[in-house]
Design a protein around this nucleic acid. Sequence first.
DNA 1: TACATGACTCTTA
DNA 2: ATAAGAGCCATGT
Length: 115
Amino acid sequence: MSEKPTEQNIYDIIYQVVRLVPRGRVTSYGAIAAAVGARSGARMVGYAMNACKNIKPKVPAHRVLNRNGQLTGKHHFSTPDEMQRLLEKEGITVKRDKVMDLEKLFWDPLIELGI
DNA sequence: TACATGACTCTTA
DNA sequence: ATAAGAGCCATGT
């Protein structure tokens, strides 16, 4: 009863934004944090991703990278290669745990969603 | 209640 | 370019 019906959990909000990321695009933790109001900060986004493995429907956490376009969270997947594999599968080039053409593939919810 | 941890980001040297 | 410190907030013990 301590929850408010108008307010959802911070994780739930983050998951919704991440699910909005189109296939073949990527975004950053900070962008997600800003989309949800930047109240929690980029750290909470990554923290939420860690818990997303238990959430359904599945959250495309592999499309969420750090500010540098680096696959910082690849170690948290089933296998360290899973994240890169998923990205390449969507047409994204990954080199040395880094996404190429980040500026071209970057998907900013603040802009795309018109926030 | 307080402390420690973390899939971040920024600034400074 | 690399390294280190600080800021930030939610979660778990």
